[in-house]
């Protein structure tokens, strides 16, 4: 029996063996296939992986906001020790004030018919019971904090009257108005220009410090994780296949998939070495391979990789890999990328 940890050393968020199934042509495959991860207080964790790997479903399952057709079929989501899946009422109470979420497309989170000022502080206003006057003052303060120029004028506009970058700032403001302890981010900068992305990343970095907020940040861009996060979880085909501190993971990955992703990412400062294209394509939910799900694309796969189970195993220094043959990764690291 594990000892119950005190409230202080308990992680803020603890996801244990989460399963999410989806409808796929009559079948019900596990799009999220047994994910476990933790976010400590004040920590920023990146969740990366290819399109369809299950990043958004994982994030949405945490907040109980799964799309129709998707449902949680197993596992626990503990927030400060309370299981949010077993206790949806406490989850509703937490939304916006304990946990908030920002999305790639702010228009999905913002109402098109309400002025952005009102939307920005809606959750916080109900939570704190602010008067309209206080609410407006808070909204202006928050807008300035988000770097929204002309805050007073901007707050009386409608979402469609704002640029993509400003909408994203408004959405972040709305998410942070209730001063959540945990911010879930689903590719909030993917649709933006690098210039605006850079501004949003710097904004999130600053807010994280100021509000000592934790983040779980979904993206497919490893460089964004390098800028923002302390730890990274790499997903492939519904599972986490590598986990560890960002710097160590990106300089010495312990899973061939992570290494492939790193070698496929072009470097803006350097053109040494050829770009590596991971052979083949990521499998769809309905046709994920048996054994190690990466084996059809893995450059160092062997027949043993085609069946059996490949759990995420710790390899020391806070790192873990689902590759059963980490020594092969080390060998791979010594080979040059060939075209």
């Amino acid at each position: 029996m594990m000892q119950d940890p005190g409230p202080d050393d308990q992680p803020l968020l603890q996801v244990e063996d989460l399963h999410v199934t989806v409808n796929a042509g009559g079948a019900r495959p596990d799009a999220v296939d047994g994910i476990s991860l933790t976010v400590a207080s004040g920590e920023a964790v990146g969740l990366v992986g290819e399109s369809g790997s299950g990043k958004s479903l994982t994030l949405r399952a945490i907040l109980g906001l799964l799309p129709p057709g998707a449902s949680v079929t197993g596992g626990r989501v503990l927030y400060r020790g309370t299981d949010l899946i077993a206790d949806p009422r406490s989850l509703r109470r937490l939304r916006g004030t304990g946990i908030s979420m920002i999305f790639q497309e702010p228009m999905t989170a913002l109402s098109p018919v309400a002025r952005v000022g009102a939307q920005m502080i809606d959750a916080a206003r109900r939570h704190h019971g602010w008067s309209p006057h206080d609410a407006r003052r808070q909204a202006i303060r928050l807008a300035r904090q988000m770097g929204i120029p002309d805050a007073e004028a901007t707050l009386s506009l409608y979402p469609h009257e704002l640029s993509g970058g400003l909408r994203q700032r408004v959405m972040i403001a709305a998410a942070l108005a209730g001063e959540p302890a945990l911010l879930l981010c689903d590719e909030p900068t993917t649709a933006l220009d690098v210039t605006i992305q850079d501004q949003i990343i710097k904004l999130l970095t600053r807010l994280r410090d100021e509000l000592s907020m934790s983040m779980l940040y979904v993206t497919h861009d490893l460089a964004v994780v390098a800028q923002l996060c302390d730890r990274v979880e790499v997903m492939y085909a519904g599972r986490i296949i590598e986990s560890g501190p960002v710097t160590a993971t990106f300089s010495r990955p312990v899973h061939p998939y992570t290494m492939g992703l790193l070698r496929a990412t072009p470097d803006v400062d350097d053109v040494q070495g050829d770009l590596y294209a991971i052979p083949g394509y990521a499998p769809g939910v309905a046709d994920r391979p048996t054994g190690c799900p990466f084996h059809p694309r893995c450059p160092v796969a062997s027949p043993e990789c085609q069946s059996g189970s490949f759990p995420l195993l710790e390899v020391g220094d806070g790192r873990a890999t689902a590759c059963a043959f980490p020594e092969r990764v080390a060998r791979l690291a010594e080979t040059e990328v060939s075209s």
């Binding site: 210039t195 850079d198 490893l222 990412t265």
Partner: peptide, 23 residues
């Protein structure tokens, strides 16, 4: 210069110049 400075980097290297501000 500002566009280049705005590109997120995998490795933490010193980046020349300041990223473009505003829109």
């Amino acid at each position: 210069q500002g566009l280049l400075a705005a590109v997120p980097r995998l490795a933490s290297r010193p980046v020349r110049g300041t990223a473009v501000a505003g829109e």
